[in-house]
Amino acid sequence: MTFINYASREINCKIVYYGPGLGGKTTNLQYIYSKTAPETKGKMISLATETDRTLFFDFLPLDLGSIRGFTTRFHLYTVPGQVFYDASRKLILKGVDGVVFVADSQDERMDANIESIRNLDENLREHGFDLRAIPYALQFNKRDLPSALPVDVMYRALNFKREPTFEAVASEGVGVFDTLKAVAKQILVELRKQ
């Protein structure tokens, strides 16, 4: 939920990274955390299992600078990707302003990608959002893996509204900031419309 605070002149927006388990959502946030200046970020919180799988969410607050005298702050969240954490996943979408879908490029994960987008659509609906209308960016992660499917095959299967789409290798930072910028821009444009 965009929160405009006229008293402290801040805009706060919430971006959620969604996608199948082990697709690289947390890695996206970790890369952003590692590459941003200390004064522009807060603490990164990861609620993970002992084996480093996301249990509830990762959270990273980020200041992008000021726009029209308002400090623009983005709160980045990931959801737990594993199928059985659906109840938790739904909770994270509360008050979301924009979604990044991190798809796993590996051939054997295509079904999981498709299932996860369907799940995103369903969970957004429960919060009264429409995936077709909400600021949204698509990322094809793990492009460096040998079993990565051709981009045009993935595009045809996963892109459904010509949303901005990026190839990425999140562990090396390729495509990470481009994806974030694409969704952040859409959120700000949305703000202008309102």
């Binding site: 939920m1 929160f3 603490k43 607050p61 994270i92 509360k94």
Partner: peptide, 30 residues
């Protein structure tokens, strides 16, 4: 706010990481 943003605060607020508190409290409530 229920989505994890701070609205206002009072007291020894410098002793705490308010942003993290906000997001974890909202997660907890959810």
């Amino acid at each position: 706010d229920k989505s994890g943003q701070q609205i206002a605060a009072a007291g020894e607020i410098d002793q705490f990481d308010a942003t993290s508190l906000a997001s974890l409290t909202a997660g907890n409530v959810a």
